[in-house]
């Protein structure tokens, strides 16, 4: 088996007395989207900064494509594309100039800015100063910039924060394309629906430690309440909400009867959402 794209062992970092990252370990495979979730101040950004070579770990190691982030920092950064939480583009330059600058820093041969801008839906506006762009356009340009070097490692921090659903869809399909081509994606987001949709596995970090790490489906099952919520319609136009417990003797018959006897409008099994899990895992800690 190929070595993992990201391999983290016992990584720690503290700001003074404040232990922000407390001995975390995990691997991310090539082509995998790894969702990294947790409340503000849990250590998410610190982890990203450690993995992208902005901070030097105080203990533990991080290898990116087999390269040590401390001793081979610049070599590892050659393979990274990063989209930051707050947009940091050259606002006095236009989109093409922004991308070309970074392409030249990565020394990308035959870089085609227009083709990339086409992919993020910004062609036609490429000659305008970025300062005139809407938030969504800037966000998409950030994504394009992260893809300039066709990176094998993508670090995306809130890549769709504040984007309308159409732009969000554009960004999601870019992520899917990148992983299909073998890139590993390290995704930090507050949007649990997005994390669920995109991530192969998610890790929850709380107070500097990873407290849960699994596929979204496995987590949802583990934390879920097993019940069916059924909305049935009556002849008089009223609707009624019923709940059927799952995993009990006779459940199958009860469900089947319901569908046979009633006019079912909607039915939804109540898996926990990642949001529920998030609140379950971190909410208690926040309150106490």
């Amino acid at each position: 088996m190929a070595s993992p794209a990201i391999s983290v062992k016992d990584l720690s970092f503290s700001y003074g007395d404040n232990l922000a990252v407390d001995g975390i370990s995990f691997d991310v495979a090539e082509g995998e989207v790894f969702g990294f979730l947790g409340p503000n101040g849990a250590g998410k950004s610190t982890t990203v900064r450690l993995l992208t070579g902005q901070l030097t770990p105080q203990a533990g190691t991080a290898e990116l494509l087999g390269m040590d982030i401390v001793s081979e920092r610049k070599k590892a950064q050659q393979e990274m594309g990063i989209s930051y939480e707050s947009t940091n583009l050259y606002e006095q330059l236009n989109a093409v100039e922004n991308l070309n600058l970074f392409a030249r820093l990565y020394k990308v041969a035959d870089f085609d800015a227009m083709a990339l801008l086409e992919r993020v839906g910004l062609s036609g506006r490429e000659k305008e100063h970025v300062a005139n762009y809407s938030k969504g356009m800037k966000q998409r340009l950030m994504m394009a910039r992260a893809l300039v070097s066709r990176p094998r490692l993508l670090f995306l921090d809130e890549p769709t924060d504040g984007l309308d659903p159409v732009s969000t869809q554009t960004v999601h399909s870019l992520i899917e394309t990148a992983t299909r081509e073998g890139a590993a994606v390290f995704l930090t987001t507050h949007d649990m629906v997005e994390a669920d949709k995109l991530s192969d596995r998610v890790a929850f970090i709380h107070e500097g430690r990873i407290v849960a790490l699994d596929t979204p489906a496995a987590l949802k099952q583990r934390f879920g309440m097993r019940a069916l919520k059924v909305e049935v319609g009556h002849a008089n136009g009223q609707t009624e909400l019923r709940e059927v417990a799952l995993d009990e003797a006779g459940t199958a018959q009860a469900v089947h009867d319901l569908f046979r006897d009633e006019h079912v409008l909607t039915v939804h099994s109540e898996e926990a959402t990642l949001e529920d899990i998030f609140i379950d895992i971190t909410g208690r800690g926040l309150q106490g």
Binding site: Q54, I82, Y84, N88
Partner: peptide
């Protein structure tokens, strides 16, 4: 503006 961080996380030092 944060562009300095963006530059220093490329191969440029």
């Amino acid at each position: 503006k944060g562009t300095l961080v963006a530059l220093t996380t490329t191969p440029a030092s």
